[in-house]
Design a binder for these strands. Structure first.
Lengths: 146, 146
DNA sequence: GTACTTGCAAACTGTTTGCACATCA
DNA sequence: TGATGTGCAAACAGTTTGCAAGTAC
């Protein structure tokens, strides 16, 4: 099933006249099987475990291509680097634990209401919506004591 | 009035045993009189217009200090660099024009409702909330035609 | 006077690019 | 075979740091 998404992604590559190389398939596989939200460095590290000869620039080029074709999205969860996830049909936003960095996805109709309200008030035509909530996840809060 | 905020900021500096240098005052002045949301490079450029001898590292160090003391906040409006604004008592979020890069601040009680809802559902204790809506501002939409 | 700040240059991190070689269709 | 993709090294942008000289208090 998650496998099906990878196959679909590879078809999109092919449909755009791009080659399906071992490296690209590997990058997709890693993003797929990872709860998403990895950064390029981490994808590179994991890729090297499977194929020690892959280069960091190939990872970046692969991610950029996948992004152009709409297969993955680039996130800006923190200030320092980009993170990537498989693009999903369902819109969702991110809850990020400030201690363990875990990312949980959520969606809420309140977001849509917010967008309608703000766009009506300010006259913007909204194209993209980013909602990131940062805080302690239940596990870290428990561990935290207090 | 906006002047008053700068004075207050300088007092905070002083209260923390930090010196009030011409460079720090200049950085504050620039952020103050700028509709906010400048990045370090732009602050540096404007600072040099007033004091050609200021260095980029001084700007970065100043911004980091101001941030540590809670006087300015660092934003991540786009992927590439940090932006800074004077920290305000009132919470607000950002509407960003994808064409002219203009930033409009907004707030809405729907955001608070969203936070309560999500934190109740997922068990997170929310510490920070980022809502960024990206789209065309009214002016750019008009100019755009279509 | 002395601790804090600055300017400069050099280091670092994340990301992109030029180029020769490899490779898939 | 010819267009595409890869690996490597070098280039970049944004940001940070070490150090000697300068400055606020």
């Amino acid at each position: 099933m998650t496998e099906a998404r990878k196959v679909r992604a590879l078809e999109v590559l092919h449909a755009h006249g791009k080659r399906i190389t071992a490296q690209r398939a590997l990058i997709l596989e890693i993003i797929e099987g990872s709860e998403g939200h990895l950064d390029a460095g981490e994808i590179y590290r994991r890729a090297r475990a499977k194929d020690p000869r892959i280069s960091l620039s190939t990872v970046y080029r692969g991610l950029n291509l996948l992004q152009e074709l709409g297969i993955v999205s680039e996130l800006h969860l923190d200030e320092e680097h980009h993170h990537y996830e498989l693009k999903d049909e369902t819109v969702h936003h991110h809850l990020i634990c400030s201690r363990c960095e875990k990312v949980v996805e959520f969606d809420s109709s309140l977001v849509d209401r917010l967008v309608s309200q703000v766009s009506a008030e300010e006259g913007f035509t909204i194209e993209r919506v980013h909602v990131d909530l940062v805080g302690l996840c239940p596990e870290c809060r428990a561990r935290e004591g207090s």
